[in-house]
Amino acid sequence: MKIPILKLHDCLLISIQWELDDETALQFQEDLLNKIYQTNARGVVIDLTSVDIIDSFIAKVLGDVVHMSKLMGAQVVLTGIQPAVAITLIELGIKLNDVHTALDLEKGLKKIKMELGE
């Protein structure tokens, strides 16, 4: 299943609405980087409100895509990480270093705009 990537001005918006399997996560990584390239997007918001589990593999894929996007010149913000997901990630020993986050989509978009100096 493909995760839809929406374009809004110079930002890309992604809302992950179902449980991620490994293949979907890797496909998303590739799709997002291609979309950044095609659209010249400068900001990306990935909303995780509906995601109720992030294991070490999905965390690695997400962390990687943030850094890959940065290499291409796009800022990424992860939004809506659920309390239970935050707790399990830290207990599992996963630190998403240098990854920008925000409470919800709205705050995420604000953060991106600030980062981009708009």
């Binding site: 109720d52 589990i53 659920q82 309390p83 239970a84 997901v85 707790i87 399990t88 207990e91 599992l92």
Partner: peptide, 10 residues
């Protein structure tokens, strides 16, 4: 509860 479900699932 939700948090323990997430721990177990993870």
């Amino acid at each position: 509860g939700i948090v323990d479900q997430a721990r177990i699932t993870t």
